[in-house]
Simulated scan of single mutants.
Amino acid sequence: MAETYTLMATAAAGLESVVAKEVQDLGYDNVQVENSRVLFKADRSGVARANLWLRTADRVKLLVGEFEATTFDELFEKTKALPWEHYIPEDGEVPVVGKSVKSTLYSVPDCQAIVKKAIVNRMLNKYGLATKIPETGAKYKVEIALLKDKATLTIDTTGPGLHKRGYRVGQGEAPLKETLAAALVMLTNWRADEPFVDPFTGSGTIPIEAALIGQNIAPGFNREFVSEEWGLVPQKVWDEAIVEAEDLANYDQPLQISGYDIDHKMIQVANQNAKEAGLADLIHWKQMQVRDFHPKGKNGYVVSNPPYGERIGERKEVEEMYKQLGVNMAEHPSWSVYILTSHQGFEKLYGKKATKKRKLFNGFIRTDYYQYFGKKEKS
Results as ranks from 00 to 15, higher is better:
Met266Phe: 04
Met288Cys: 13
Thr70Val: 13
Ser203Thr: 04
Tyr251Glu: 07
Val226His: 00
Ala210Gln: 09
Glu194Lys: 15
Gln324Ile: 12
Lys357Asp: 04
Val38Leu: 03
Leu147Asp: 10
Tyr308Thr: 05
Gly14Asn: 10
Met329His: 13
Ala192Glu: 13
Lys356Pro: 05
Lys357Cys: 06
Ser379Glu: 10
Gly297Lys: 10
Asn216Val: 02
Leu325Gln: 12
Ser334Glu: 13
Leu153Tyr: 09
Leu15Met: 11
Val237Tyr: 00
Val185Cys: 14
Leu360Trp: 14
Lys353Ser: 08
Ser258Gln: 14
Ala151Asp: 06
Gln215His: 03
Gly128Val: 07
Ser36Leu: 07
Tyr369Cys: 04
Ala354Thr: 08
Gln32Ala: 03
Thr179Gln: 06
Met288His: 04
Gly159Cys: 02
Tyr251Ala: 04
Arg168Asp: 06
Glu143Leu: 09
Ala113Met: 14
Val226Asn: 01
Ala2His: 02
Leu360Glu: 10
Thr136Ile: 04
Asn125Cys: 03
Glu244Thr: 02
Thr136Lys: 14
Val33Gln: 06
Trp53Gly: 00
Asp43Ala: 00
Thr205Ile: 07
Gln215Ala: 01
Gln215Thr: 11
Arg315Cys: 05
Ala138Pro: 15
Val302Ser: 07
Leu255Lys: 14
Pro134Ala: 07
Asp368Leu: 11
Leu340Gly: 08
Asn299Cys: 07
Glu90Trp: 15
Pro333Met: 07
Arg366Ala: 10
Ser45Arg: 00
Thr157Gln: 00
Arg55Ile: 00
Gly231Arg: 05
Lys286Gly: 08
Asp25Lys: 01
Arg122Thr: 08
Val64Met: 08
Glu74Gln: 15
Pro199Ser: 06
Leu63Met: 11
Thr104Met: 13
Lys177Ser: 13
Ser258Val: 02
Glu77Gln: 15
Gly351Cys: 10
Tyr369Asp: 05
Pro109Gln: 12
Trp285Lys: 11
His264Glu: 12
Lys265Leu: 05
Glu93His: 09
Glu244Trp: 02
Ala241Pro: 00
Ala145Lys: 11
Ile208Trp: 09
Lys348Asp: 14
Ala249Tyr: 06
Val197Ala: 13
Ser17Trp: 01
Trp190Phe: 06
Val23Asp: 01
Glu22Val: 01
Asn121Glu: 15
Asp43Pro: 00
Lys148Ile: 03
Val337Gln: 11
Arg44Thr: 03
Thr104Ile: 11
Tyr301Trp: 15
Arg191Val: 04
Ser103Trp: 11
Val96Asn: 14
Leu147Met: 05
Gln324Asp: 12
Gly204Ala: 05
Leu82Cys: 10
Val18Asn: 01
Asp198Phe: 07
Ile114His: 13
Lys316Ala: 14
Gly231Cys: 02
Pro134Trp: 02
Lys150Tyr: 02
Tyr251Val: 03
Thr4His: 01
Glu34Gly: 03
Leu26Gly: 01
Lys99Asn: 13
Lys102Leu: 10
Leu54Met: 02
Ile208Val: 09
Asn299Ala: 05
Leu162His: 01
Thr79Glu: 12
Pro175Gln: 07
Tyr28Ile: 01
Ile119Cys: 12
Leu39Cys: 04
Thr154Tyr: 04
Ser258Lys: 14
Glu209Thr: 05
Arg315Leu: 14
Arg311His: 11
